[in-house]
């Protein structure tokens, strides 16, 4: 029993050690308005290859913060007309496969997962699968 309590406490310690720095980083990003600037710079450097500027912001939000915030941003911006519907569908499909690329995988890496699989390969696989699955949704 004591071993269970200790194990649980260690897990909670890991979760805390990951959640708090990520929260701090994300609040700094949000407060310094780094996200719109980054979105602009990324979309201009990707040109025609990637999503437009409008869809890039929800994409970044979903990648960094999770599907709830990304989806919410997508709804807000689509309603405002800043995102085209087919772009919204593509980005939404991608986010469904791959959201929150730092927080969630890091937790699993901390308990013994392999970061290459959980962070890199997952992202790449989602990239590859999205064009095919977009037609289904």
């Amino acid at each position: 029993m004591a071993k269970t309590v200790l194990g649980c406490a260690k897990l909670l310690g890991l979760v805390l050690a990951i959640i708090v720095p990520i929260t701090i980083a994300s609040e700094l990003v949000r407060a310094r308005d780094l996200l719109p600037r980054a979105a602009r710079r990324i979309s201009s450097s990707m040109g025609r290859l990637g999503p437009g500027e409008g869809a890039l912001a929800p994409l970044l939000i979903g990648l960094l913060f999770g599907i709830v915030y990304g989806g919410g941003a997508m709804i807000a911006l689509t309603r405002a007309g800043a995102v085209k519907p087919e772009e919204a569908r593509t980005v939404g499909t991608f986010l469904g496969l791959c959201h929150s690329i730092f927080e969630d995988p890091l937790l699993f890496v901390a308990i013994g997962g392999n970061w290459l699989w959980l962070m890199v390969i997952r992202f790449l696989l989602a990239l590859v699968l999205t064009p095919f699955l977009r037609r289904l949704s």
Partner: peptide, 21 residues
């Protein structure tokens, strides 16, 4: 997810904080 393409979508864009202060 139906879009509302209006002439002042640009204004909406500005309002949704994609503009850097």
């Amino acid at each position: 997810i139906e879009p509302t393409f209006s002439p002042d979508a640009g204004d909406a864009l500005a309002k949704t904080a994609l503009v850097v202060p």
